[in-house]
Design a protein around this nucleic acid. Structure first.
Lengths: 176, 176
DNA sequence: AGGGTCAGGTCTGTTCATTGAACCTGAACG
DNA sequence: CGTTCAGGTTCAATGAACAGACCTGACCCT
């Protein structure tokens, strides 16, 4: 965490989780990874985060097993950051927090709509598909912009790429 | 958040949520509120948090409508901090994060067990009661220590009070 | 072969939240 | 009338976050 990265004295699993994803920016980085962002410079452009902080956070998330680093092209070889299985399990709490933010700390309607790719139904606040009546894993979710989007706020290439309907976890990049 | 409390440029409801509960300590304060902690000095003893930071976080959580301040005794009048309806809706993501921490960032088994008060069944990772097959609101949950508890770690009166099985949201204090 | 560009970082000085400890206040208590 | 208690406020020191400049290696073009 910001200043004193741990809650060493807390005998609590929430504190353990926050030591991993509770630092400033960490959860937004993980969210972006769900959205398909995987390149260093793409996180940088989309999050407006200092480079040194991004370096540090990505290293920490790799070290704690939330992300792993993997080449996404050769010649020249470039590495991207992708969610591990443990990282994928963060979907429900992150989605839940975002939905809470939507209801309690936002104006102008949902910024992003999440639907079950198979049937097109919009997910409920717990991440379940109302028509299929079961939880939907991130890979089966399609995201698209909602009415609350403020197009003037984000003009970087990644925001534009993410503003097109696409499946979660599908790699997105600034050049395409 | 730690250093720069906002993510102003992020057009995202997760960022809005993190502006409210993403600062260091904030989520642990909310968790303690679910556990029944409500007095300033009890948060202080249980969290090992600097007083000035606790003051600041409680004020911010009240200002953002997660907690409200309310007298819990007269003569002398004393105020406690309690979850609002919006605050109560944070239960699912917080429980989900804690369960994730349990599975991915802890050793020695669960520190705390959460069960459906009515039927005694232990909740699943999403906060549902497997036998009743529906989500359980915090007021219907009983917490008790699990096998992973490290009794040597927390010896303050609040930890001892919380270590006895009790319902969530039931006020707990150091003198009883 | 030399210049430009791109990804993915490091380095540096400044700013500002966090920390821990000491101090303050008002009301009861004995 | 001194003490205790809840619930803070004030302070200096610390160290993470920030913005921006700089660095490195590999490709690409001519």
């Amino acid at each position: 965490m910001a200043l004193g990265t741990d809650y060493a004295q807390q005998d609590c699993s929430l504190a353990r989780a926050l030591e991993v994803v509770g630092e400033r920016w960490s959860m937004l980085i993980v969210r972006d990874a769900f959205y398909g962002v995987h390149r260093f410079n793409d996180f940088l452009a989309h999050l407006d985060i200092p480079r040194a902080v991004l370096t540090s956070r990505l290293q920490a998330l790799v070290a704690s097993g939330v992300l792993h680093k993997e080449p996404y092209q050769r010649s020249p070889v470039r590495y991207g950051y992708f969610l591990t299985d443990a990282g994928l399990e963060l979907w429900e709490p992150i989605y839940g927090l975002a939905q809470w933010g939507e209801r309690n700390a936002s104006t102008g309607g949902p910024r992003t709509l999440f639907g079950h790719t198979a049937c097109g139904t919009r997910l409920d606040r717990t991440g379940h598909c109302p028509s299929c009546d079961r939880p939907v894993p991130p890979a089966d979710i399609t995201m698209r912009p909602g009415p609350g989007t403020d197009e003037r706020l984000r003009r970087d290439p990644i925001s534009l790429a993410l503003a097109r309907p696409h499946r979660l976890l599908t790699p997105v990049s600034s050049d395409g």
